[in-house]
Amino acid sequence: MRTGDYKQSYGELVALIDSPPVWLWSAVLLLALIAAPWLLNSYALSFLMIILITVTGALGLNILTGYTGLISLGHVGFLVTGAYAYAVLVSKYHMPPLVGFLGAGIVPALASLIVGAPSLRLKGLYLAITTLAFSFIINTVILEMRWLTNGARGIQVQRPEILGISFDGDAAFTYLCLAFAASTLFATLNIRRSRVGRAFVAIRDNDTAARVMGINLHAYKLFAFVTSAFITGIAGALYGIYLSFVSVEGFPFLLSIEALAILIVGGLGSALGAVLGTVLIVLLPEATRLVFSLFSAQMDATFTTGAQELKSMLYGLVIILFLRFQPRGLVGAWHDIKRTWVHWPLRY
């Protein structure tokens, strides 16, 4: 039972995990995730894969939009660049998959420098618009560079074999996704509690004040861009492998919206929020389908025919409802519940 915050040093204030129960639950979750591929059927397993890949991408966007407060409407651009970098390196030039993953991080990171540099002068909406423009330009660039990317025909991607271990099966590939998602989660949590993370948050909360405090705005904004694009690019490579085919159509603009929806639903600026948001957003269409199918077979049929439309409608609805009624997202709701539980019957 936690009876108070007994913090006696600065180190304790920024500790990754500050209480034993959190260690325990994290370990339980990790064990559950490791056991999951053996217990779940292939249908449920595909959802787990998607969740893990999406978590990686959402955490990437979280660094830029959640921590640093720079809104990006073009993250699908980094996703598709990463996927193509991997596909071109591994499928076309037969490089080892590890090199492919490294390339999938580095190429979007370089691209983000091109977007990020002009964006340093821009704030808020204008930045969002530039990133939006970037994501459309990158699609055209990919389609035009036929000699490298096969243009509209796309590139076939095999499941990788790394250091002699084949990740061909669904269970094995889930472990690969789990490894990437878990290390991304650790990386972002550690970035958040370091000097760099505090600089990001300072820029988000008030950039003028941050600048007066001696934070180099340009350097940190670019750093946020590069880190975010690196992580997102790797998520893109994983998604490309999952689809086993990389093409521009596989990465529609809706993915950018989905990523922002995840952050808003989960709670902006929180790694836990990104994880919770992903689980909710990925499972939402499926859950809605289940609820509908309980009512009637006819509604179930509508769902199968208009699946894509209903899915995007749900995203839109969820974004609006959360912004209206729970702007702090699932994480905020969780904090409220905890507080109510501890203080009841007092208000605070």
Binding site: G124, L260, S312, L317, L323
Partner: peptide, 17 residues
């Protein structure tokens, strides 16, 4: 402003579908 603009994005997705 961020929240309100995101609402218009949500609205856009709904209207489109």
């Amino acid at each position: 402003v961020f929240a309100t603009v995101m609402v218009t994005i949500g609205l856009a997705v709904i209207l489109r579908s």
